[in-house]
């Protein structure tokens, strides 16, 4: 296997995530999509590390660890906000949360 295989796979996964974020209305699905994009980025980090000149520095796994921790925090806060939003609007549909729009 070469680095290119992994990079193309990561790009594909990232775009799947992007597509989800652009084409779905449900806020929770948008959160899924963000997670998919983050994971695609993690795959890139690990692949670059694996095929790098000096893997002993462990830059890739370290950065991925930090990214995973931040993503976990993001999911927790994001879902808490979503529950708060649901309590207010009685929906998690992103297109019906438009109270800032001019009528």
């Amino acid at each position: 296997m070469t680095l290119h295989h992994y990079l193309i796979l990561a790009a594909l996964l990232f775009c799947v995530g992007l597509m989800g974020a652009f084409t779905r209305r449900n806020a929770i699905v948008v959160l899924f999509s963000v997670e998919i994009m983050l994971n695609a980025a993690n795959l890139n980090f690990i692949a670059f590390w694996r095929y790098s000149e000096n893997p002993a520095l462990l830059h890739g796994p370290l950065f991925t660890l930090f990214a995973i921790a931040v993503a976990a925090a993001e999911v927790a806060v994001g879902l808490a906000l979503m529950i708060a939003v649901y309590r207010h609007f009685k929906t998690v549909d992103l297109e019906s949360m438009d109270t800032l729009r001019e009528e």
Binding site: Y6, L9, I46, W49, G60, P61, L65
Partner: peptide
């Protein structure tokens, strides 16, 4: 599984 394939077992 892909991470495991890239030998990043801890990740």
């Amino acid at each position: 599984g892909l991470f495991l394939l890239l030998l990043a077992e801890f990740i």
